[in-house]
Design a protein around this nucleic acid. Structure first.
Lengths: 137, 137
DNA sequence: CAGAATCCGAGCTGATACTG
DNA sequence: CAGTATCAGCTCGGATTCTG
């Protein structure tokens, strides 16, 4: 179970140290990150932040995702209560996906991280090139 | 190459739409997330935010990490310019890891996400249980 | 102490075909 | 349209062993 990485025993053992709090706090942050850190979740959440979308609409917008992965991504977002799925029993079937309030609240910190990424990804790219250049001496 | 998921052709094709910007912006965010969204990077960065640490010191503090994964995590953080590695040619060898200014700047948005996680992970856990309960009807 | 190298199994992923 | 089912390929990650 992902969200119980920090079980009670471990927490108690380290209860006093300052690092324990850092670890505890970050274990939770880490779990959330590994949840939304996959290839598609953030993309989906951010696209849904502008309003409800249908399945194939998302698929087209994202572009590089297989229908299998989009299904799995949406299902796990729904499971975590970030996305609400509404299906209309029409023919052909129609399914809408939209963010829950919880999903919307996630957008803010994600946008903060996105802003950081946007400001620094060139620096990162340069650091990588410099690093890789030193590899081949 | 991770940071070029959004290549120029795609960017041009979608240049006008509003979603294009969402996608473009989020592709970068997504790359960064998939970079730090792995199991250990955030933990390492946050631990280093309190000061330089040695290899086995980090290993002990984190607890559940194999030395292989810690090595790989540190190396890729170093490659991205988030961590500086300093080795002292003593016997036994000693290696210090510390955050670069770039690494420190990452702490802020990550902390924001951590705060969100801390506030909401119980809600998420409940949503999961509710979802899983509905599975078995 | 701080790794590098190797092996190997579990799990993620994409492609493909099928369904209501 | 919006999925499900199945299978093969590949990557990830842990355990173990070896080195300067």
């Amino acid at each position: 179970m992902i969200l119980s990485t920090l079980d009670v025993t471990e927490a108690d053992e380290l209860a006093d140290s300052h690092e324990a709090q850092v670890i505890g706090h970050c274990a939770v942050a880490s779990d959330v990150l590994s949840r939304i850190g996959d290839k598609w979740s953030v993309l989906v959440v951010m696209l849904l932040s502008t309003g409800p979308k249908r399945f194939n609409e998302l698929k087209r917008l994202i572009g590089g995702v297989s229908q299998r992965m989009l299904t799995l991504t949406l299902r796990s977002l729904e499971r975590d209560g970030l996305v609400r799925r509404t299906q209309f029993p029409t023919i052909p079937p129609r399914v809408d996906y939209e963010l829950t309030p919880l999903g919307h609240s996630l957008c803010e910190p994600v946008r903060a991280l996105g802003a950081w990424a946007f400001e620094n990804y060139q620096t990162i790219a340069e650091a990588r090139m410099a690093f890789d250049a030193r590899e081949f001496r």
